[in-house]
Structures are given as structure tokens and as C-alpha cells.
Simulated assay, not measured.
Amino acid sequence: MPARYCQDSPDAILCCALEDMVLLYHRPSGQTNMTISPVPEILATLDDGAALTADEILGQLALRYDPGEPGEALPLVEAHLAELAALGLVRIA
């Protein structure tokens, strides 16, 4: 069964866009992380509190953006989710 990812709460992360970069302030840890696309877009798919698989997140991204070839995009989404989980910005539900 694939892992499902979610945010603890939508207000746990504050975003500040600076040109092509987005700063993510994680309130619970007090840490700020610098990110670029598609990380903010991945987090936006989890804003409503839903627990989604990497494939479901890619499907949501594809509704608004061109994520590229699915065979290439899915491993990238999975890698970003693993990094976000390691930072505590998302968790495995």
C-alpha cells in the first residue's frame, strides 16, 4: 500500500514568495526552509487536510500545471515528499 502524506494543520506553515523562491516558515519547529517549484505546489495540494499518495498528488498537480511525463514526474514528487517528511513539513498518515 502506498504511503499517504498530509500536513498536521494548514496554518503550521507560512509561505513567503520571493521571485522564484518560496520561504516556508514551519511554526512548530521554528525553522525556515527555502524552496522552489514544485514544492509549494505539492504543499498546496495538501492544504485541505487530505492524506494523499504521491500518485494522487501528481494527479492534482496535473490539473493545474504541466508536471511533465508521468514516468519521470512521479519519482520526483516522491523524492520531494520524502524531503518534506524529513523536514517535518508533511507527515505520513
Rank of each mutant, 00 (worst) to 15 (best):
M34C: 13
C6S: 14
G49Y: 03
T32F: 00
H26F: 02
R4A: 03
L24V: 06
L61R: 03
P38T: 07
A79G: 07
A93T: 10
E41W: 06
P75Y: 01
L43I: 02
P40S: 07
H80E: 02
E19W: 10
D8I: 07
A17V: 13
Q31W: 06
M34V: 14
Y65K: 00
I42L: 06
P67R: 03
G68A: 08
P2R: 14
A3T: 13
A86C: 10
P28E: 02
D47A: 15
A82C: 11
T53G: 02
E19N: 09
G30H: 05
L46M: 00
L76E: 13
P75I: 00
H80L: 08
A44E: 00
P10T: 12
L24M: 04
P2F: 08
D66K: 09
L24K: 01
P67A: 02
D47Y: 00
I92H: 13
A82M: 07
A79I: 04
R27K: 08
A85N: 11
E83K: 13
R4W: 07
E78W: 00
P38N: 00
D47L: 15
H80W: 01
S37F: 14
E72M: 13
A51Q: 01
D8Y: 11
A54R: 05
I13H: 03
A54H: 06
H80A: 10
I92E: 15
T45V: 09
N33P: 07
Q7A: 03
Y65S: 09
I36Y: 10
P75E: 03
M1F: 15
L84F: 11
L63T: 09
G68Y: 08
N33V: 15
L18Y: 10
L74S: 04
I42G: 07
E78C: 04
C15H: 12
M34Q: 10
R64I: 10
E19G: 11
Y5Q: 11
R64Y: 12
D8P: 09
E56G: 08
E41C: 00
A51R: 04
V39T: 07
E72I: 12
I42N: 05
L81M: 01
G49I: 08
C15I: 12
D48L: 13
D47R: 09
A17C: 10
E83W: 14
G30N: 08
L87Y: 14
E19A: 12
H26R: 01
P67S: 05
P67Q: 05
T35L: 09
A79M: 06
I57K: 04
E72G: 15
L24I: 08
E19V: 12
G88A: 08
V90P: 03
D47P: 05
L58K: 03
E41A: 10
R91E: 06
Q7F: 01
H26M: 07
T32N: 00
A17N: 14
L46F: 04
L52S: 01
L14H: 09
A82H: 10
L18F: 12
Y25G: 07
L58T: 00
A54Q: 04
D55C: 09
A54Y: 04
L74M: 05
T53D: 03
Q60L: 15
